[in-house]
Computed example of a mutant assay.
Amino acid sequence: MSTEKIVAETRTEFGKGAARRIRREDKVPAVLYGHGNDPIHVTLPGHDTMMAIKHGGANALLELEIEGKSQLALTKQVQVDPVRRTLEHVDFVVVKRGEKVTVDVPIVLLGEAAKETLVVTDATTIQLEAEATHIPESIEVDITGAEAGTQFLAGSLPLPSGSTLLTDPETLVVNVTQQQSAEALEAELEEAEADAGIEKEEHTPTEEEAAAAESDGGDSE
């Protein structure tokens, strides 16, 4: 995992008003927690921080320069504006090189399963313990040619060297099932409606539909 270097400014102003002023300057308010120290409130350059988090993924590791000192920080929570898609706030956990951390790592599927199958991702992430500077960006699951009935459990996934699985090894991650035909889906829907006491109403053609049908019949003669 690569480490992005960013210069951070300490801040003493807090609250919604201060946060709005920071964002108007294209910067991002952030907080660092951990190692028994008091929280460190900083301001980060908006664009650089956004790119670093995009590049690093869900567990982006940043090297923050705070008042001339370097500090490794692991991204834990990111707030994004739902409309403008800009960073609103970032929470970091202070880490050290060689330190083991617990992280949730995304699952990524590779390849395509066999024809007429349906691939269901039951777990989008698995929890690992890994060295802070060697956190995998994702765990790849190769489903190429997988037949219906194939299941991928957490314990069977290939993990990077130095990573330890914390998720229950029996956790179902990916399930490959038989794809249902349109007829089978329709039958299931009708059965569910019948169980719920829903009766389908017979469609009575309108005058316009009846006239159109007669017109179509006349054109075909």
Rank of each mutant, 00 (worst) to 15 (best):
S163R: 08
A146C: 05
A114F: 01
E116Q: 11
S70C: 13
T121E: 11
A8Q: 15
V80E: 04
G217A: 15
A213C: 09
A182K: 08
E183F: 01
K200V: 10
A114T: 09
S138M: 09
R23N: 12
A212G: 07
T167M: 00
V93D: 07
E170P: 04
V7F: 08
E191V: 07
L118E: 15
M50T: 10
D26K: 12
D81N: 11
T204N: 09
E221R: 00
R85C: 01
D38K: 15
A130F: 10
I143F: 03
S138A: 13
A114P: 00
F14L: 15
L172Q: 15
R11V: 04
F152I: 04
V80W: 03
S181G: 15
S2N: 12
S156P: 13
T177I: 14
A184H: 12
E221N: 08
G145W: 10
G57V: 14
I126Y: 02
D48K: 12
K200Y: 12
L61S: 03
R97M: 13
I53Y: 05
R21D: 08
E13Q: 14
P136K: 04
A18C: 12
I53M: 15
V7A: 14
A184W: 03
E214C: 00
E137R: 12
N175V: 07
T171F: 10
Q127Y: 00
V93G: 00
G34M: 11
E193I: 06
N37C: 05
A154M: 10
T86A: 13
I53Q: 05
K115P: 09
E131A: 13
A154W: 01
I53P: 14
E88N: 13
P169H: 07
E112W: 10
G68P: 03
E199P: 02
L118H: 13
E183G: 04
L61D: 01
D81R: 00
A73D: 06
E207T: 10
K27Q: 06
E214Y: 05
V108T: 04
T49F: 13
T144L: 03
H35T: 02
A154H: 07
E202G: 13
Q178Y: 06
P29E: 15
G56Y: 12
P106V: 02
A113V: 01
S163P: 08
A182N: 05
V28E: 06
V42E: 01
V80Q: 04
V42H: 08
T171H: 00
P205H: 00
F152C: 03
E9R: 08
N37L: 11
V173C: 07
